[in-house]
């Protein structure tokens, strides 16, 4: 049982992650519970938060710019769901190893479970927002069809892989440079304006800035959710392939960095 050592293969490593499932699953459950501990509405906030945000943005945009609510509300809701999942994977991921320092010091577990802890927690909120978005899309644009809805399943798989990789990469960077956490928070502000989260992508295209969306690695993930819910079609192959490439590439980077850094990580905490 030597974790992260040179003679352990990926399959062995994954088996160890699986063997520790009761541990990390209970941590995820606790994170969710403690987030709302002491609040009257509790988990209800996971539901209300995206609803409030969407309502505010829709009110502003429909009164100021005369956007049609039937298409715009699901657009905003899907955007916020995807954005908060990805941005939180990065910002919360920064602290994933520090947060679990006491466990790392006590017991040799595969380190991959700590980014996983963060991402599974995020995934729960993502799931809630996504359900809301589906309901909103049903109201706004009607039944999207069975196949488009089914296409969300492999998409969510990609989201999981990408989210874990982001959390892992940002966590590792923060262990070595504490500044990364703060840089990430600032970077998220910038990135949010470069990603068509709540403003229509058309706005950018009209101003000749469409390439910003094309090179944005987060954009295909938005497309994965928006195509089925708003356009009632399976995601275009280009979007799906881009998301796949981004997810696989980031996973490769994360897995490789973790393999290289894991044995030494404890000395930097």
């Amino acid at each position: 049982m030597i974790f992260g050592s040179e003679n352990s293969t990926l399959a062995q490593y994954l088996r160890e992650v699986w063997q520790g499932r009761f541990f990390w699953m209970s941590l995820v459950r606790m994170d969710l519970r403690s987030r709302y501990r002491g609040s009257a509405l509790g988990m209800g906030w996971s539901l209300l938060n995206p609803i409030f945000m969407t309502t505010i943005l829709c009110t502003v945009f429909s009164t100021l710019f005369g956007q049609d609510l039937h298409t715009f509300a699901p657009y905003v809701m899907t955007g916020l769901a995807v954005w908060s999942y990805l941005s939180q994977s990065m910002t919360l991921g920064c602290l994933c190893f520090h947060q679990s320092e006491a466990y790392i010091m006590q017991h040799p577990s595969p380190m991959a479970i700590y980014p996983l802890r963060v991402v599974l927690g995020n995934c729960f909120h993502f799931g809630i927002s996504l359900c809301l978005a589906i309901l909103l899309a049903l109201w706004g644009t009607g039944w999207p069809g069975f196949l488009p809805l089914l296409s969300l399943v492999p998409s969510i798989g990609l989201f999981l892989i990408f989210g874990w990789s982001l959390a892992c990469i940002f966590g590792l960077m923060t262990v070595h440079f504490r500044d990364v956490k703060h840089l990430t928070e600032v970077g998220m502000q910038v990135l949010m304006y470069l990603t068509p989260v709540w403003y229509p992508a058309k706005l950018l295209q009209e101003r000749g800035l469409g390439w910003l969306v094309q090179i944005n690695p987060l954009a295909p993930f938005l497309e994965l959710v928006r195509a089925p819910l708003l356009d009632h079609s399976v995601p275009p192959p280009l979007a799906f392939c881009s998301a796949l490439v981004v997810a696989v590439a980031s996973f490769a980077i994360a897995a490789w960095s973790l393999r290289v850094r894991e044995p030494k990580l404890i000395f930097y905490l």
């Binding site: 606790m30 519970r33 403690s34 501990r37 320092e101 006491a102 466990y103 010091m105 006590q106």
Partner: peptide
């Protein structure tokens, strides 16, 4: 059995 008093989840 070492550092056992560390690492409680404070809120739990």
């Amino acid at each position: 059995l070492f550092d056992i008093a560390l690492g409680f989840e404070q809120e739990a």
